[in-house]
Amino acid sequence: MEETLKKRWDSVRLGVLLAAPLPLVVFGIMLLVLLRHLPGGGLGVYLLSEGTLARLLCMATLADAVAFFVAVYTNRLRTGRGILGVTIGYAVVVMVLSLVM
């Protein structure tokens, strides 16, 4: 009987809204850390060298994995489905970036 009740905060839309900006926020934090530790003007050169941008975005996408496992652990499977869909979209972007760069 418990399975038929709709859980609060369990929808695919919530998963998409949660997972879409999360890697971008983590990516921004990583850029701020890199900006602080690289010499002046070296960030652009570093990001465009040998697929570094794709690797950083791939690492930032791991934040979605944490959100996915929390959603599954708390039995919010629809939210997890939305998070997984966005993560697959980010994986396609990372693959294209790694092929282009």
Results as ranks from 00 to 15, higher is better:
1 M>Y: 06
1 M>T: 11
2 E>C: 01
2 E>M: 04
2 E>D: 11
2 E>H: 08
3 E>D: 09
4 T>N: 10
4 T>H: 13
5 L>M: 09
6 K>P: 08
8 R>N: 05
11 S>T: 11
12 V>F: 12
13 R>Q: 11
14 L>N: 02
14 L>S: 03
14 L>G: 00
15 G>V: 07
15 G>W: 06
17 L>K: 09
17 L>D: 07
18 L>P: 01
19 A>Q: 06
19 A>T: 08
21 P>Y: 02
22 L>P: 00
22 L>D: 05
22 L>T: 09
23 P>N: 10
23 P>H: 11
25 V>R: 04
26 V>M: 03
27 F>C: 07
28 G>R: 07
29 I>S: 13
29 I>R: 03
30 M>H: 08
31 L>N: 08
32 L>P: 01
32 L>A: 13
33 V>P: 00
34 L>I: 07
35 L>D: 12
35 L>F: 14
35 L>W: 14
36 R>S: 13
36 R>V: 12
37 H>E: 15
37 H>M: 15
38 L>F: 01
39 P>F: 04
40 G>D: 15
40 G>K: 08
41 G>V: 05
42 G>S: 10
43 L>Q: 02
44 G>Q: 13
45 V>L: 09
45 V>A: 12
46 Y>A: 13
46 Y>K: 01
46 Y>Q: 07
48 L>P: 05
48 L>A: 15
49 S>T: 11
49 S>E: 09
50 E>C: 07
51 G>A: 05
51 G>S: 01
51 G>I: 07
52 T>L: 03
55 R>W: 15
55 R>Y: 14
55 R>M: 14
56 L>C: 04
56 L>T: 04
58 C>D: 11
58 C>K: 11
59 M>W: 14
60 A>V: 10
60 A>T: 11
61 T>H: 02
63 A>P: 00
63 A>E: 04
64 D>A: 08
65 A>L: 14
65 A>K: 04
65 A>R: 06
66 V>P: 00
66 V>F: 14
67 A>G: 02
67 A>W: 11
69 F>P: 02
69 F>R: 12
70 V>E: 00
70 V>Q: 04
71 A>M: 02
71 A>F: 01
71 A>G: 00
71 A>E: 03
72 V>W: 12
72 V>D: 04
73 Y>P: 02
74 T>K: 13
74 T>F: 00
75 N>W: 01
75 N>E: 14
77 L>V: 13
77 L>I: 12
77 L>F: 14
80 G>C: 08
81 R>C: 13
83 I>H: 00
83 I>M: 01
84 L>N: 05
84 L>I: 05
84 L>M: 10
86 V>Q: 05
88 I>W: 08
88 I>V: 15
89 G>T: 01
89 G>R: 01
90 Y>T: 02
90 Y>K: 00
91 A>K: 06
92 V>Q: 01
93 V>R: 00
94 V>A: 10
95 M>T: 15
95 M>K: 10
96 V>P: 02
97 L>G: 06
97 L>N: 03
98 S>M: 13
100 V>W: 11
101 M>N: 15
101 M>E: 14
